[in-house]
């Protein structure tokens, strides 16, 4: 299949997935015990009878399920994801304000985890029983077993009391902070700890993955061919092996984006990073259901886009893939 056709097909599939997310969202809301109107209103000032009546009318809550679903989808198509009664603003407005910090956190964590992880894995693969390999094994165990939010808190304790190098909460120094380039530096400074916390888990994962993958590839026949050509070891490893070894890493990067988002919710909450995760936490405290459902939808959207991009990236690296990168 040619690339445009592939993209068109993938986009169609992505839309179907998004539709399914919406149906799921609404079904959960419908199935939830208690008065749906009160659920939607959340803790918005005790929810006056007029407000509840308005919600019932807006959402058609006395209609049958399918009619309600239809009404809900109709609103979504018009860009209306509901109203956050806590903020008294459309959910989309609230979410868009928090989107960029989350993307910044998630994308930089993933990039750091992948690049450093691959780097470590490639070097470890050349000595399967060496020190680096053992460090990676231990790191992977820690990365799996440490609760990410607790690691974050421990870092805060350490850095707040022992070595105060980095700020421990927020994204900038507030209205008194710098502007322009100074502001970028400020944000990076605040970003350091959350990214460190979030990327460490995945760093271990990717170094283990790329180590295993690299060890596989280094045993491949075409690596022997490359050596038999008289290429030096650097070219053999970095030109012939690396590009093949990185394929599973790319696959997992796409698959794991959702999991990374989950970690981001916890890490943002710990560091009060003003993104969707902190917003989700606050929404739980305020019982702000429409906002939480909106976050679920938009994070699914981001995961879908990330998967599309991974698919394209995979195509760039592996010429064999002609239809789909999915196993």
């Amino acid at each position: 299949m040619r690339l445009p056709a592939v993209i068109a097909k993938r986009l169609g599939y992505a839309l179907a997935l998004l539709f399914a997310v919406l149906v799921l969202n609404f079904t959960l809301l419908y199935l939830a015990p208690g008065d749906a109107a009160e659920t939607i209103a959340g803790e918005a000032g005790g929810a006056s009878p007029e407000m509840l009546a308005k919600i019932r009318k807006d959402y058609g809550l006395d209609l049958p399920f399918l009619d309600q679903l239809y009404l809900y989808l109709l609103k979504v198509v018009q860009g209306d994801f509901g109203h956050s009664f806590y903020f008294d603003q459309p959910v989309t407005t609230v979410i868009f304000e928090n989107l960029a910090p989350t993307l910044l956190l998630v994308v930089s964590s993933l990039l750091i985890a992948i690049s450093f992880g691959t780097f470590l894995g490639v070097f470890a693969a050349r000595r399967p029983n060496g020190l680096l390999s053992q460090i990676i094994t231990v790191l992977a165990l820690l990365g799996y077993a440490l609760p990410v939010f607790w690691t974050g808190i421990m870092l805060i304790i350490l850095l707040a009391s022992v070595i105060p190098l980095f700020p421990t909460s927020g994204m900038d120094s507030g209205p008194l902070g710098a502007a322009g380039f100074g502001y970028v530096w400020e944000v990076l400074h605040h970003l350091a700890l959350p990214v460190l916390t979030l990327s460490t888990i995945y760093l271990a994962f990717y170094s283990r993955l790329s180590r295993a993958s690299m060890m596989d590839v280094l045993g491949a026949d075409y690596i022997r061919t490359a050596r038999a050509k008289g290429l030096n070891e650097r070219v053999v490893v970095f030109k012939h092996a690396l590009r093949n070894a990185v394929l599973p890493v790319v696959t997992f990067a796409g698959l794991q984006f959702g999991a990374l988002f989950s970690g981001a919710v916890l890490v943002e909450t710990v560091f009060s990073w003003p993104g969707l995760g902190t917003l989700a936490f606050d929404s739980i405290l305020r019982r702000d259901t429409p906002t939480l459902l909106g976050i679920l939808f938009f994070s699914a959207l981001i995961v879908i886009v990330a998967n599309l991009l991974t698919d394209l990236a995979y195509r760039l690296v592996d010429p064999r893939i002609k239809s789909a990168a999915r196993a």
Binding site: A220, D221, Y222, R224, T225, A226, H240, R243, N244, V317, D318, P319, R320
Partner: peptide
Amino acid sequence: TSLNPVYT
């Protein structure tokens, strides 16, 4: 398997 799959 003796040719590298990712290069022409």
